[in-house]
């Protein structure tokens, strides 16, 4: 796993494990200054796979999934998304970002635009979709997240749960192949968590490839194909949910699970 080479990155990299891998992370490291925040991350995500990432605060979960769409830059190793390797090439970054939707902890809706405009902005400007078509698609997704009647309001006029569902709809309007979620429910009041999780469950049922950082273990049990546990910038353990929760291998996993499920 050598340094990234610009010449070889021009052509899509054929992965060894077959075409089914949408995301491949191979020996990836990242530093913030001298601080080694991600250490030798290896991860393959198949098309349609749903992965939940958990771990204590500061373990590098956000940093890892933000590397996948280049909100953060990795310094060593390879990240290959949908056959395109992430390098400094802006074209490739844009190509990957078009295919990867992201939902943030604090929604990050655009406050000066209506809900509908939030949803159509990406399709219109990035995918050059005609406005009418983009609006029709947006209304469709807003119906799927059950808030079509809020389309002409501004984000500031919605509840947190509604805002997060708009954020999900906004990402889906770009018709992404992969959805990244970074603690989508942790800024929400308990009664709103369920509505957002329900939206995510129904999204999972459509076969969307999802990487989700969350502490909602119920969600992980019902939806995830695999649960990944991170600590100290490393992937400590990786297993199917039943095994992961029923029979954790690593001491740190056990400790974490006892803390999070204990109360």
């Amino acid at each position: 796993m050598g340094e990234v080479n610009a010449a070889e990155s021009k052509t899509p990299v054929a992965s060894a494990a077959g075409d089914d891998d949408l995301i491949e992370i191979i020996g990836m490291h990242k530093w913030y200054g001298d601080f080694h925040v991600l250490k030798d991350i290896n991860l393959r995500v198949k098309r349609g796979e749903r992965i939940v990432i958990c771990g204590p605060s500061g373990s590098g979960k956000s940093t890892m999934i933000r590397c996948i769409n280049r909100l953060e830059e990795h310094q060593k190793g390879q990240i290959i998304v949908d056959g395109i390797e992430l390098t400094n090439d802006l074209k490739q970054i844009d190509a990957i970002r078009r295919e990867v939707g992201m939902v943030f902890q604090h929604f990050n809706l655009f406050p000066h635009l209506t809900v509908l405009d939030n949803c159509t902005l990406g399709p219109i400007w990035v995918r050059q979709t005609p406005k009418a078509e983009a609006e029709a698609t947006a209304m469709e997704y807003l119906s799927k997240v059950k808030i079509p009647e809020q389309a002409h309001k501004y984000p500031g006029q919605l509840s947190g749960g509604q805002q997060q569902r708009v954020a999900i709809a906004r990402s889906l309007c770009m018709n992404p192949r992969i959805m990244l979620f970074d603690e989508p429910t942790s800024a929400l009041d308990p009664e709103m968590i369920k509505e957002v999780l329900d939206t995510m469950v129904s999204l999972a049922e459509t076969g969307m490839t999802m990487l989700c950082v969350t502490h909602e273990m119920g969600f992980a049990r019902t939806v995830a194909d695999r649960v990944i546990f991170m600590d100290g910038g490393e992937i400590i353990e990786e297993n199917e949910p039943e095994e992961f929760f029923g029979n954790p291998q690593h001491d740190r996993t056990k400790l974490f699970l006892s803390q999070i499920l204990g109360h």
Binding site: D94, V126, M174
Partner: peptide, 9 residues
């Protein structure tokens, strides 16, 4: 970040 992650230039 939201703008970047959408792929806006």
């Amino acid at each position: 970040e939201a703008a970047d992650s959408m792929g806006l230039k």
